[in-house]
Design a protein around this nucleic acid. Sequence first.
RNA 1: GUCUCCUUGGUCAAGUGGUCAAGACGGCACCCUCUCACGGUGCAAUCAGGGGUUCGACUCCCCUAGGAGAUACCA
Length: 561
Amino acid sequence: MIASKSNHKISNMDYKKLAELLFPEIDKTPEHYEKVYPERNLPDGAKVTRLGPSPTGFIHLGNLYGAFAGERLAHLSSGIFYLRIEDTDHKREVEGAIPSLIEALDYFGIRFDEGAGADGDKGDYGPYKQSERAEIYQCYAKSLVEQGAAYPCFCTEEELDEIRQEQEKVKANPGYYGKWAKHRDLSFDEIKEKKEAGMEYVIRLRSSGNPEKYFTITDGIRGELSMPENEMDVVILKKTGIPTYHFAHVVDDHLMRTTHVVRGEEWLSSLPIHFELFNVLGFKLPVYCHTTVLMKMDGETKRKLSKRKDPELSLDYYKRQGYIPEAVSEYILTILNSNFEEWRFANPEADICEFEFSTEKMSNSGTLFDLDKLNDVSKETLSRMSAACIYDYLADWAELTDEKKYKVISDKKEMLLKVLDIDRTGAKPRKDLAYCCQIFEFIKYFFDEYFVIEDELPEQVGTDVAKEILQEYMMSYQHSDNQEEWFGKIREMGSRMGYAAKPKDYKKNPEEYKGHVGHVSTVIRIALTGRSNSPDIWEIQQILGQNKVFERIEKYSDALK
RNA sequence: GUCUCCUUGGUCAAGUGGUCAAGACGGCACCCUCUCACGGUGCAAUCAGGGGUUCGACUCCCCUAGGAGAUACCA
């Protein structure tokens, strides 16, 4: 069908012979696989998407970003989201990458309908590991050879190097194509001879593209794209018989009936290759959705996130920091779809799944990862979450990271449930809980094991006065006082000692007072929490209990010299 | 080098020929307030540069610059 214009030394008749010579053991035909993997029977508009990670390391935020897009697209349309492991490069494979990947994604709520799993494949379109699909790729490669659209290439690395050097010398584009493709027009006998001599070879596409000609394609995210046709005789099967990414992508996404290919923008420039491959194989083109890469600030410039350089952005890091998965999802969605924040504002209680995610609303310039924003989104998210729910995450996190913390957290569950709820009910809930690590720091003074005096007395209060305040406070303390009664006493005590009952009065006439109630209450606050800033003291006292209140006040008072 | 994509405040961004160029994060100031947080009000801050097209350009075209990616028997 593409039978080329180049002057092959092989007649059309011989392509079949060549295919047999190259793939004697392949007895299946593309028609066979078409039957085995029929069109999916899904409702109209259902999208089939996939995540195709290579098990070469540990997954980071950038991967989650792409995974999220695919997952949303599929599940919002009653489609299928599956996991395909792209392990065609054994050299780079990292032990244990797959289970850890599945686990990490699961933690962030990304579940697959089918595909590779920790306990084997699920679904009718498998196997879902490319390393187990060799026969299939070879079958399609064979059919390409039969058509004259692919051929064996026996070039060694050295020969390829020579070609490259020659190209550099004459300033030609590097690559294996056109007249540079040494083995493009080998005769059947030459091929047979080399093969029988035991020479290793790869299978290359016999490209019929013309880079002078452009084709257009509509990207789901970027809209209309115009690109030159591919002219490279790219390798489709390596000498091991394993396909390259390009070939595996085309065969798999066709056979697995993927409708939308969501992948990083680093693939954009290979689109011409994929376009030609789809055409030459007679497959229907999926909708491509090229996402932007997640960037990070590196000194003065933006840079793509990298697994090697940015371990602090690995998903595992977030888990260890104790970021709540729902919060991370919220964050990802806010950078994924520009109208998400608006939607969330209008629907504060809605489940994230109700948001109508769309590829058109995806940004197409590099997004910088912003920790401040993540934290803000996280606080917002946690403010809508129940204390019990946060407690569970906190306990899980501690169990994972720190035995001692886990012990105090599980021992004091009842207390913590109250602590986590301080000031969080009502119209204006506190928003100071962001992630477990930070939460623990924030509330640790409730545990004697972690309680320390961190802050100094305010300058308006001398040591003697502080002692006096604490003594008087203990004398008048009634645990059963309500918030108003309790604070009234502090005001009164402060006034008696020369502190303004209202901070405003003090600000107006600072010379008339030693300070204001705020300074008085700070002394008590430090005694009880170790810090000059904390949520409402009355609430803290109610949770701590009368005995603990006295104990801490006394201890602090004694410590003041 | 060649090819492709991208370019609105410090960051994320809305915007598709006529807007005083939204909003969010962060920053600052003030208000509320016993501290912190929350909440409220306000301020500073953006169309990379240059040419066109047009009555009119952030928006369309071209050039330049910058950034990212590809140019592998890696994905």
